[in-house]
Amino acid sequence: MTPVSHRVVGRRVETADVVTLQLEATDGSRLRYAAGQFNMLYAYAVGEVAISISANPLGGGPIAHTVRNVGSVSRALCGLQIGDTLGLRGPFGSDWGLDSAAGGDLVIVAGGIGLAPLRSVITQVIAERDRFGTVEIVIGTRTPEELAFKAEVESWRARSDLSVHVTVDRATPGWRGTVGVVTTVLPRVHCDPAAIALVCGPEVMMRFTALALMERGMPASRIRVSMERNMQCAIAQCGHCQLGSVFVCADGPVFTWERLEPLLAVRQL
């Protein structure tokens, strides 16, 4: 699959090491995608990396990708400026399955940069707010400074039809909000066993979060998590992303906890 050239039409520095890029295809084509899917982004002469889409799929605007500088490719991507071009292959993988959640409550739990693929969901839910019941959003971050999408999170907080909880692992002077790991917030959120939970963050955080949600009475089949593995081809042919019989690139990245729990229970699977 050959990439399509995309131009950076917007760029926002989210935190010290996170940048959101707004992209438009140079040939004018439009990507159709669902919240939770990812693209392979290519930086010239450096390489490709899998990055989830962070924009509202119904928004009609540019595609957004929120990139954290953790390696050579992501560093090159974070350095791109408005007007620069990159390559994009996609969209790939499973999505959050928002349609199947319509009519019910949502519990959205994000940890760190895991907020990016969930921002795609949250913005879509806001656009179609009456399709869903109560919406609880729990966002965990390391420090207040490392919260991405700050202005947007503030605008979500201001809405009466969303319940937003931001918690930090380490407060800095002046922080008047909640301090504590995300799981300590879960006992306080509205969490109907019939709700759908969408969880994204580091693997350990997702494991503890799924456990905490199950303690709240949610069945594993209603908890959806988004997995990270080494991805190169994104089309189930390079083998890198395998987890047991699963290809995370094609069968995932979004899985039910019911599917994932037994796989993650085996160390180094």
Binding site: N69, V70, G111, I113, R142, G180, V181, P202, V204, M205
Partner: peptide, 14 residues
């Protein structure tokens, strides 16, 4: 203990 893990911390950029 979970906070000690520094879950969201940056690994060494590689």
């Amino acid at each position: 203990r979970m906070r000690l893990l520094d879950l969201y911390g940056s690994p060494q950029p590689g």
